[in-house]
Nucleic acid binder design. Sequence first.
DNA 1: ACAGCCGTCTGACGGCTCGTCAGATACTCT
DNA 2: AGAGTATCTGACGAGCCGTCAGACGGCTGT
Lengths: 212, 212
Amino acid sequence: MHEEMLATDGRIIGERAIATRQRLLDATLTLLRRDGVLDVKVVDITREAGAAPATFYQYFADLDAAILALAEAAIDDEAPLVDLLQPAWSTPADAARARAFVDAYATYWGEHYAVLVLRNLRADEGDVDFRSVRSRANLLLVRRMAEMVKLGQTEGRVTTMLDPFAAAAAMMAMLERLLAYQNELSRRGSSKAAQRETLTTILFHTLSGLTT
Amino acid sequence: MHEEMLATDGRIIGERAIATRQRLLDATLTLLRRDGVLDVKVVDITREAGAAPATFYQYFADLDAAILALAEAAIDDEAPLVDLLQPAWSTPADAARARAFVDAYATYWGEHYAVLVLRNLRADEGDVDFRSVRSRANLLLVRRMAEMVKLGQTEGRVTTMLDPFAAAAAMMAMLERLLAYQNELSRRGSSKAAQRETLTTILFHTLSGLTT
DNA sequence: ACAGCCGTCTGACGGCTCGTCAGATACTCT
DNA sequence: AGAGTATCTGACGAGCCGTCAGACGGCTGT
């Protein structure tokens, strides 16, 4: 089942229009990266896409609506990461799988950085649509991580001081924020490799209770 | 030694002007909180402060310059937190001190939330002034945490898999991001108390190698 | 081939914010 | 009171936002 795509006035749009809409989304992403999250202008987007400003508003109520569409698209790239958390880590050798997860998440983050930052800003502000899209993106991972913690607790590996859901959210928070930091960090402190290894170690221990 | 305050044209400003400048900063903070990080307008700030738009530009080259000044001011509230990390945590009973640190950091974050988010955005984008102010705010804490990790490693409590500096940065990242999340999290998963307790446990273990 | 139709796109506009300037206002000192 | 300096402001050009009526162009039926 494939949703019909709609213009802002509600009509179902055809092939040419879908292509235009996509060009606008591509341009939005390009300019988000080039100009930064705070300085994107609709006029620039339409210039980049080779369209008139009015065309943008035919497909998106405002800039946020376009960002929201990009955030929706990003979900597809986050969902597969959950497979790297399956089955649960239960021996020191599984640290390699934790490392693979961190690498995969770093890649995902790198590709969608600008969109995710904006999504988080709007979600933190309380916007319901952005909250919804963030939840749909993260909840799969958070739930799975929480299960891992819970399992570790029943098997006596993980301290029961941890609230499984909160611990999972803390790990997501750490990953997100540290990855945003990493460029500056590598100029001031430790190399990116050391950062990855450290992230892996903390993540692995928190979710499995194990050390390597 | 007390820096003279300057207008954008370089002249040293007097008492009345200092008060106006401060009113503008206060208004900026108010509107950052009310309208959100992405929707603050200079016109609104001057309206709020009861001044003409032109007055704003007499003291700040642009909105960023005002935010930067607010971020500078926030440093004073972050610096004392380093005392809560001294001396290093070395027994399970020190978990109480970790909890105190988390609480204090949460308070600090709550008070400066909007400014810190914007500071991080600009710093992540590569703006040198915002990077500098972020470093000066965080480096005290990060350095101290790194020392704690290093000490724990020499005493055999903490795994040598951790890069001390990276681990410290990871903890800061976790704190910052999870605190931004916490409202939504408490509606979907675990209570704020459980979140605090979980943060404390992870922080305490990562920095000291201990469990409670 | 061509007329008509409908989906798509656009130029042009009012309203707003930005950032600047020259000049008005308020304070200080004699 | 008057001169001089510090501070503030109204008014403006430029640029972006978001909307509208209408232009364009590809398709359909004859």
